[in-house]
C-alpha cells in the first residue's frame, strides 16, 4: 500500500487504539507485580513494550508521520537487547539458587 493511497484514521478511532494500548500496559504492570517467576516478569515487561508500540504506531498513523514506526524499531532494538541481557542474568541467578522465584533475592531488604 503506498502512502498516497493512505487514509487517515479519525481521532475517535485513535482513542480506541490508545485505550487498547492502556489496557495492555496495565495488564503488563499487574502481571509484573503479581507473577513471581522472573522469566514471566520479564515477559510482562515485553507486554508493556507492546502496549507502547501500539500507541506509537497509532499516533504515527493519525499524524501521517513515520516517526512512530521508527520509534517502534528502536523499541524492538531495546527489547532485544534487554531480552538478551536480562535472560543472561536470569540464568545466572537461577544457577545461584536453583529457583526462578524473584522473592528469593531479597537480601537488600531492611526487615
Amino acid at each position: 500500500m503506498t502512502v498516497a493511497q493512505a487514509t487517515t484514521i479519525s481521532g475517535h478511532a485513535l482513542g480506541h487504539y490508545l485505550l487498547l494500548s492502556a489496557v495492555l500496559f496495565v495488564i503488563g504492570v499487574v502481571g509484573f507485580t503479581t507473577r513471581r517467576n522472573m522469566i514471566v516478569m520479564f515477559l510482562c515487561t515485553e507486554l508493556i513494550f507492546q502496549a507502547a508500540a501500539i500507541a506509537m504506531i497509532a499516533f504515527g498513523r493519525f499524524h501521517a508521520d513515520v516517526s512512530g514506526q521508527v520509534f517502534v524499531i528502536f523499541i524492538l532494538t531495546v527489547a532485544a537487547a534487554e531480552a538478551a541481557l536480562a535472560l543472561g542474568l536470569v540464568v545466572l541467578l537461577y544457577r545461584r539458587k536453583e529457583t526462578l522465584n524473584a522473592e528469593a533475592w531479597s537480601e537488600l531488604g531492611e526487615t
Binding site: 496495565v26 504492570v29 503479581t34 507473577r35 513471581r36 517467576n37 529457583t99 522465584n101 524473584a102
Partner: peptide
Amino acid sequence: PEYDRLPREPAAAVMVGF
C-alpha cells in the same frame, strides 16, 4: 512450583493498575 501458582499481592497490584 508454588511461586508460579500463587500470585503475590494481587489485590494491591490490581488496584494500582486499574
